[in-house]
Design a protein around this nucleic acid. Structure first.
Lengths: 254, 254
DNA sequence: GCCGATTTGTCCGTATGTATC
DNA sequence: CGATACATACGGACAAATCGG
């Protein structure tokens, strides 16, 4: 639950924008007026507005005001932003999500795995392959590797429900940061076996490294998505000098 | 040039992290000490640190400190983050970039174009197809549509160099916000004609809408990238309650 | 073109809350 | 429990951009 005041204001403004109370192209009340409206300091308003800007709801214009640029076009059913788990996302969007464990084993990181995942050579790992279904359709092939020392006593049963729930609520691990990388890769035999690909010979692949509060990278995951159900959104803001996104970087390998 | 103090500090910290002065896993000096080091207020330090966190350089831990989680692995040659133009990115990375204009024409938005781009039906547009080469290799097919009213007197010559340079420096347009969407799509005949695709029958497609300071969406662009040279990065931070990214949202269309 | 009112951008100092050790 | 650290919030000051008279 959001107890932080700036987050309450952020949500209220967001709701008013989505519901059309503040219309597309309209200016929000000035910061001074929002201060009065919400009974808080200007800094608090500014934090809320900054969040909205970073999500593409508004653009703030020096000397003019804050303009709404949200258009209801972009409504989407399913969000993979943040570090939400598949379960959490599905529930939030009232979709029927199921998971099948295709492979559950333990292994030790060799040079090849280390190269790909970032785990040191010799790390003891859980290796898991899971297929994610949404309304019965196989959409994602997840390949997880967990550091055995951290994700203690992981079982196939836990993998079939929610690993994140187990890590956070049973083991008490605090998940903090996740670095993600998106690429497009050719399908493998495993992909073709489990996902019902039509003509596509490629997948959208999100590789991520997750860190706990000890700063240890304890998880490497590859989510291999069917192209026809995959979409990823973000917003960038141009600064005076030149560049500047909001934490996103798209790169070409060499 | 960055005259903002928090930006100076941000860059200095970033540099010290990249150069290894602050090592992987190490804690930064506490906010109190950074205040002394840089001779500024705590708010300013916090802004700088927040920027670093949103880019995956550090993770800040309540009651503990700010830990460096940057690893030099992720250095990449070419950044498309922010609203940088192809030219700007290439120059910054000392790569030999060239552009060929494959098509330059004017057209009026019909129902189909409006649906795809977001321009109202009947809008007068410039329609441009360009192929982007890096070190001689055709990597990107760019399809641009500009609102004629805003991007006045665009010519094929300008399209061959830098449209953004023309818009900003000649026309004096201020580019503010850009919304982007990433999908994976099957290749078209045009893709195959210009890009040297090997076995891939898909492309990474970034569709973006760009707004000027009048809040007018004046540009719609599709950048169709060869998969083998495409990569997109971001960082997410997990909040207490549950979700939260940093402005990124990945979605499943229904 | 200038000036003043409005609005956002940056920065400061301080106080209080909360998590860690 | 106390010391340390980050998180949130407040109020005030000045700068910079915009717009109207």
């Amino acid at each position: 639950m959001p107890k932080a005041k700036f987050e309450e204001i952020y949500k209220d403004l967001k709701h008013k924008i989505e519901s059309g109370e503040y219309e597309f192209q309209q200016l929000l009340p000035s910061e001074k007026n929002l201060v009065i409206l919400y009974g808080c300091s200007r800094n608090t308003i500014r934090r809320a507005v900054a969040s909205l800007a970073s999500e593409g709801y508004v653009q703030s214009l020096h000397g003019i005001g804050v303009r709404v640029i949200f258009q209801p076009v972009e409504q989407a059913a399913f969000t993979i932003g943040g570090i939400e788990s598949f379960q959490e996302s599905a529930e939030r969007n009232h979709l029927n999500a199921t998971t099948k464990v295709a492979c559950f084993m333990e292994l030790t990181a060799d040079e090849r795995i280390s190269q790909r995942s970032g785990f040191p050579v010799g790390s003891s790992l859980y290796y898991i392959q899971r297929i994610r279904y949404l309304d019965g359709k196989p959409l994602i092939l997840d390949i997880n590797m967990f550091l055995k020392d951290v994700a203690k006593d992981l079982t196939e049963e836990i993998a079939a429900s929610s690993i994140y729930d187990y890590l956070e609520n049973t083991l008490g691990i605090t998940i903090v940061t996740s670095k993600r990388k998106m690429t497009v890769e050719l399908t493998t035999q495993i992909d073709e076996k489990y996902l019902e690909l039509d003509d596509y010979n490629c997948l959208a692949v999100i590789s991520s490294q997750t860190f706990n509060s000890d700063g240890i990278m304890f998880e490497y995951t590859q989510s291999r998505h069917r192209p026809d159900y995959f979409c990823f959104q973000d917003t960038a803001v141009r600064k005076k000098g030149g560049l500047q996104g909001n934490g996103n970087r798209g790169n070409y390998g060499v």
